[in-house]
Design a protein around this nucleic acid. Sequence first.
DNA 1: GGAATCCACGGTGG
DNA 2: TCCACCGTGGATTC
Length: 206
Amino acid sequence: MLQPSLLELGDPPGPRSLAGSILRHELGRGAFLDLRRAFLAGATELFEALVSQVTWREERRPMYDRVVAVPRLVSFYGPGRALPDPRLEAARALLERHYRRELGEPLATAGLCLYRDGRDSVAWHGDTIGRGASEDTLVAICSLGATRRFLLRPRGGGPSLAFDLAAGDLLVMGGSCQRTFEHAVPKTCRPVGPRISLQFRPAGVR
DNA sequence: GGAATCCACGGTGG
DNA sequence: TCCACCGTGGATTC
C-alpha cells in the first residue's frame, strides 16, 4: 500500500484547481497539449477504488491469423451513465467549465483503461472516429497509478514528444490535435505497476 | 547487451 | 468499394 504524498495531505480528495497551473504546449498546425501535474488529489486512494469497483472488460480482436487479447482492460461510460466515483464527476465538471470555450459541448463520455503492467499498451492512434476530418475536438486524460510514458507525434511522420504521466496528472489534447497528431502508450521492459487512464471526450468521439 | 523503436502483416467496420 | 485502423513479433536502432 502506497502512502499518500505530503503534497496530498492538505487537499481534499478530488480535482484541484486548473487556473494558473496548466502548462500549455503549442504543437503547431492548430494543435495544443495542456499538462497539469497532480490535478487529482488523493490519487492513490482513487486508483484503488476504481481498480476494485469498476467492471473491467477484456476485449479480443482478430489480428491476422489469430484472435489476440487487446493489451489492456477497458470500461466505457457513455452519455447519461453515472461515473463510478463522485470525484470523477467533479473532475469532469471542472474540465467542462475550464475548457468551455474550446469545447462548446459536454464531455459526455468517459473511457477507462487499465494497463496491468509494462506489457499492456496502446498503439499509435488519434481519437477521431465519429468526427469529420475537419472538425476539432478535445480529449482530457487523467492518469492514476504507476507512471507510464505517453508519446505524441505528427501524423505522417516527425519527431515524437514524450510525457511521463504520474498519478493524478492531467493531460489535455485540443485544437486539431486528434487530426494532425497521434498518440500511444508503448510497452516497456521496465518493471512497472498498474495504471488507469481516464479519458473524457465529447459524445461521438472515440 | 538490453531496451526502445520501427515496420509489415491483413481482417474488420465505417 | 475503399481505406484507416491496430497488436504482434522480428528487425533495426539507440
